[in-house]
Amino acid sequence: MRKVLVGIKRVIDYNVRVRVRPDGSGVVTDGVKMSINPFDEIALEEALRIRERGAADEVIAASIGPDDAQQQLRTALAMGADRAILVRADGAIPSMIAARALHALVEREQPLFVILGKQAIDDDSGQTGQLLAGLWDRPQATFASKIELEGNSARVTREVDAGLEVIEVDLPAVFTTDLRLNEPRYVKLPDIMKAKKKPLDVTDLAALGVTAAAQLRVVRLDPPAQRQKGVVVKDAAELVAALRQKGLLQ
């Protein structure tokens, strides 16, 4: 069976204005809406489309996170994933721990490829896919805006600083998604009902042989420095004069 493993992270919804707690211990999460990391949602959509084209047989959504991450996995199942796995872990999960957990799942499931977001919008580290590819010693195609499977390889268009780069990788491989890869589908109510009957296995880091101890800690969070509000000029002439005075225009 040709399986696809999709990484799903539970994060604060992208529409929420994130605030740092006054004591610097983290950000305010009480009563805050949580969602699937938007880049992971794109990854899931791509996996579903590849399965629907007949190029894969099973889509497995996997999350490393708290018990509540089952909500996001149920959403993934409602979108169309065939089954889900929650690797239970509390607190902030460093990228290396997530990558080791995914690597353990890869050894167990032997997927055709793994696909996940290029970054999670909470800690913005952007490492997990590349770490997994390195641990697994398999190819990586990051920041993908187009994925074409061709037999035992894939041709991937990547969004890089210079423009668009195309690379070819042998499978199995790890793909990370950029914004323009696709537009995820909306979940329909009957699918939410159906998703309740789909399998969702719960395991934990220890069961996968992953030690939770990290060599990396977040010591403190601070709000960012604010810029001083400037002045509003009355017209184009005044703007040009002000820029000349600052030496920014000739």
Binding site: V18, V218, V219, P224
Partner: peptide
């Protein structure tokens, strides 16, 4: 072994430490 980096789309600055 102690650095500062942005997270949450720049809405927070994290001080992180490696052993």
């Amino acid at each position: 072994n102690r650095f500062r980096r942005p997270c949450y789309a720049g809405n927070a600055i994290a001080t992180v430490e490696v052993d």
